[in-house]
């Protein structure tokens, strides 16, 4: 797939159809693959990568890239296209300046998942699609790819691209029977005290590095309310550890109905806080209260939280559900 992608990218660069290519390249560590911008065939040959370690969602970069001179080619995995489509819906990306090539994905290997198996001193990781070989300071180790994948890929919601100009490889389908709400259900079943304890425990580790906000495709504001001294929320999330917790809750509210559940927030969190669970709670509630809705799936569909209909649930629904959830 990698060579096919490089070939197509070179062709499009050579014909002048696109001015640059957004893809993936090696990062500081071998397993730490990062997004990259390529403008020449040479750069593509020497640095462009596409393998089981290319986790990053490239859609958000297109907000800035689509405003540059000339067209930008971007490679999008199926789940990335949902974010891309949602950003189109919000008029954040100029569609006419982007050339989208959809690339297949059967799940990505995640270094945090590998570390969680107990391996330390990891030097590099490679995957042949079936088996992942991990080189550590203490010797080599292998595991099946399924064991090395992050939760978001195990519970993949879709292998289908919702927006593209061209596709490489085979197109997949929406995965209907994923279990992405299992953990949300577990948290819902907790008593309020247990739940509070759970989140205090998780969120107390937050160092406010803002990585979650910076990577989130839904967090694309020109200026975040937390950075805007006129917003009345300026510095609200920074004065003590409890308010820091509020930062995440407010962020979840701000992306409610727009979050496509791409899971980037949890991936980039250096403290391994399962932030995506906050967003999934909203997604689950929206599904239950307003009917099944997948943000980004359909750019023309009106979002339930932005639309008033006479069939909408009444506020009393909270009481009908016993005020528990």
């Amino acid at each position: 797939m990698q060579s096919e992608m490089i070939k197509r990218a070179k062709e499009l660069l050579a014909s002048g159809e696109v001015a640059r290519v957004v893809g993936w390249k090696a990062g500081e560590f071998d397993y730490d693959i990062t997004p990259g911008v390529f403008t020449t065939a040479e750069e593509l040959d020497s640095a462009f990568l596409y393998n089981d370690l290319c986790e990053a969602n490239l859609s958000k970069y297109m907000i800035a890239q689509s405003r540059k001179e000339g067209k930008t080619l971007v490679f999008l995995k199926p789940c990335d296209t949902y974010s891309f489509s949602q950003l189109l819906k919000e008029h954040r990306i100029l569609r006419e300046n982007v050339y989208v090539i959809g690339v297949p994905c059967d799940g990505k290997v995640d270094v945090d998942t590998v570390k969680a198996t107990g391996l330390t001193g990891i030097c590099s990781m490679t995957s042949d699609g079936e088996t992942v070989t991990v080189k550590t300071l203490y010797g080599d180790s292998t595991m099946s790819k399924a064991d090395a994948m992050s939760e978001r890929c195990i519970n993949c919601k879709s292998k289908k691209h919702v927006v593209y100009d061209e596709l490489l490889g085979e197109e997949g389908d929406v995965v209907a029977d994923n279990h992405r709400f299992d953990m949300v259900e577990k948290i819902e079943a907790m008593t309020p005290d247990e739940r509070f304890e759970f989140w205090r425990n998780e969120l107390s580790r937050c160092i406010r590095c803002n990585a979650c906000r910076n990577v989130c495709p839904a967090c694309s504001c020109e200026k975040c309310v937390f950075d805007n001294e006129q917003s009345g929320a300026f510095n609200k999330g920074a004065s003590d550890s409890f308010e820091e917790n509020m930062f995440h809750i407010i962020r979840a509210f701000h992306v409610a109905g727009r979050c496509t559940d791409c899971g980037e927030c949890s991936r980039v969190c250096p403290q391994n806080i399962p932030l995506h669970l906050l967003n999934r709670k909203f997604i689950k509630d929206i599904n239950e209260l307003y009917g099944e809705y997948q943000a980004g799936e359909n750019a023309d569909e009106r979002a339930p939280l932005n639309t008033f209909t006479t069939e909408d649930v009444e506020p009393s629904i909270v009481y009908e559900r016993g005020g528990k959830q």
């Binding site: 919000e90 694309s220 979002a303 932005n306």
Partner: peptide, 11 residues
Amino acid sequence: MCNGCSSCEKV
């Protein structure tokens, strides 16, 4: 500050 996202227009 406006992102041009149209949320306000829709509601």
